[in-house]
Design a protein around this nucleic acid. Sequence first.
DNA 1: ACATATAAAATCGCTTGCAATTAAATTGCG
DNA 2: CGCAATTTAATTGCAAGCGATTTTATATGT
Lengths: 149, 149
Amino acid sequence: MNTKSRHDTPRLDAQLCFALYAANLAMSKVYRTLLKPLNLTYSQYLVLMVLWQEDHRSVSEIGERLQLDSATLTPLLKRMDAAGLVTRARSREDERHVVVSLTEKGRELESRAGAVQDAVFCASQCSVDELGDLRDQLQRLRNHLAENA
Amino acid sequence: MNTKSRHDTPRLDAQLCFALYAANLAMSKVYRTLLKPLNLTYSQYLVLMVLWQEDHRSVSEIGERLQLDSATLTPLLKRMDAAGLVTRARSREDERHVVVSLTEKGRELESRAGAVQDAVFCASQCSVDELGDLRDQLQRLRNHLAENA
DNA sequence: ACATATAAAATCGCTTGCAATTAAATTGCG
DNA sequence: CGCAATTTAATTGCAAGCGATTTTATATGT
């Protein structure tokens, strides 16, 4: 007799959102451990990666890249400002924009990021091709979900 | 002259963690919209899916399934208790365990979940095979990251 | 029996994430 | 020009999420 409920094979989308949720938590946990010696949270590190790619971005530009809004970014950037990683200043051309810039300290951390990313790549135990495929599939999924929201 | 920084091609692991982060946010946003009429948050829905599969689980069993610890689950389950979705009771055999059970209301919501999952599947614009592959890759990645944390 | 170790959940303090709202600057259009 | 609509950040209030610690219950060793 089967005493369990009838849902021994949960639906595919349930399995997918479980997997996505858990993979993201696992990723953030790995980064958290690696970033602790640098006194950085995962979100702060994501913001730094955005700025390392291109400095002096407005709050909304950073938000567009990370899919975060000002309610999340403003306090986060204030903490990064207090920690001496970035500066925030109103743009002179358009005072609505707050331009976020790396400090020397924020820029210097980039050289330490290589070791972190190497460690994550190593822990993933995946080939470059596998990770590339996964990235492409995730981006496709995200774009579809964002379009049809 | 190239005035941008030298990081026009960020490292693969950076791209991957951006994609994973953004895909998870997009997924939770889609669910949030769909779950709002049911007065459920995404996390609460994940817990319900765990209990629909098998009822009467301890806090730590739910936590193992979702990779969440008691510091996250205790307040979450209290809110679900207050909303009348689950009950929480100390196990009689081992009073250290708190057993979480669905109420009639929590059980009834399952019939409404089908429409939610159909909508997510539709919004994903992916085939069953694609989503299955993605789920497998994410699970593999998570397992590797958890092992080598 | 009793101290010690282990296990499960709860608690505290903090950061993240978002919906809804507000404030200020800019744009556009009569 | 004048003024409504739009854009950008900030603010508020709430729900996750977790490291560190505490509380309570059970297991283990001598």
